[in-house]
Design a protein around this nucleic acid. Structure first.
Lengths: 133, 133
DNA sequence: TATTGTTATACTCTATAACTATA
DNA sequence: TATAGTTATAGAGTATAACAATA
C-alpha cells in the first residue's frame, strides 16, 4: 500500500518537475536555511556522494543556491533560492492532496487511531535503535 | 516509516543473496506454478522489459527455470526450481521476522485495528480505481 | 593527518521504444 | 498485422571508494 501511495505522490510532484528524492531534499532546506552538505547527509541518512549528486541536479534546475564558507574554503552551504522557496509549499499541497486521496476513506477517529499506532512504532524504534555514533 | 521497514527487509533478504524485487518475483511464482512472463508483468504491474531483466537475473542465480511452450514458439513459462522453491519460505520467514521487529511494539488489539484500517483504504481504492482495460 | 566535498564506478529498478521471431 | 519476449537506451537512486583541497 505504501508503494501505491508513494508512486501516486511521485507522479504528482513530477508534474512540478521534481522527483520525490528532490522533494525530500528541498523540504529539508525549507526548515534549515543555509545548511552544509555534510549536515544534510546526516539528517537525510544518505552518503555525501548522494547529496552531492542531488544538489547538482537541484542547482541545475535553479531551485537552490550555494554559498561559500569564508572561514573554511573546503566548505559551503546550500539553501533554497526564491524559486525553490516558492515551490516547496506547492509540493506540500500535493502531499496533502495525495494523503487526502487515500485517507479520505477513513473517519476522523480512524485517522487519529492510525497516527497514534504508527507513532507508537516509531517511538519504540527510537528507543531500540540507539544511534551508532 | 514504511521506508525504514522496507530497507530493513532489504538488508535481511540480501543476506540470502536476493533483492526485494527478486523476492516479489519469486513469491509470485510460488503461488503460480508455470507462468508466462506476460502474465507476471500484468500481475506485478511491471513492463515486459522489466520482467525480462529480472528473470534473467533469477535464471543466472539458478532460482527459476524456463520451459518452452510447444504450442507457441514465441512463448515460454517460468517457474521456481528446487532451489527457488526452498528459498521462498526462508524469505517469508525473514519477512515475518521483519514485521515482528517493528510491530511487536503493538498490542494484539492495536495490530488488528491497524490491519483493519489499512484494509479499509485498500478496499476503497479498489472501488475507486476501476482497472483501465 | 583529518575533514569537506567531488568524482568515478557500479548496481538495482524501472520505463520507453525498437526489434525479432512467430502467429 | 498482431503478439510474446528481448534488447537498447536512459535516468533515478544510492553505495563505496579514491581523490583534491584545505584545515
Amino acid at each position: 500500500m505504501s508503494n501505491t501511495v508513494s508512486q501516486s505522490f511521485a507522479r504528482k510532484v513530477e508534474r512540478e518537475g521534481v522527483t520525490v528524492a528532490e522533494w525530500v531534499f528541498l523540504r529539508a532546506l525549507y526548515d534549515g536555511g543555509h545548511v552544509a552538505p555534510s549536515q544534510l547527509a546526516e539528517g537525510m541518512a544518505m552518503t555525501k556522494g548522494a547529496i552531492s549528486k542531488l544538489s547538482d541536479r537541484l542547482l541545475e534546475k535553479s531551485l537552490i543556491e550555494r554559498r561559500d564558507n569564508p572561514d573554511d574554503k573546503r566548505a559551503h552551504t546550500l539553501a533554497l533560492n526564491q524559486k525553490g522557496r516558492a515551490l516547496v509549499p506547492r509540493l506540500a499541497a500535493l502531499a496533502d492532496e495525495n494523503d487526502e486521496e487515500f485517507f479520505s476513506a477513513l473517519t476522523l477517529d480512524e485517522r487519529r487511531r492510525l497516527a497514534q499506532i504508527l507513532r507508537k512504532i516509531v517511538n519504540e524504534r527510537e528507543l531500540t535503535n540507539v544511534p551508532l555514533d
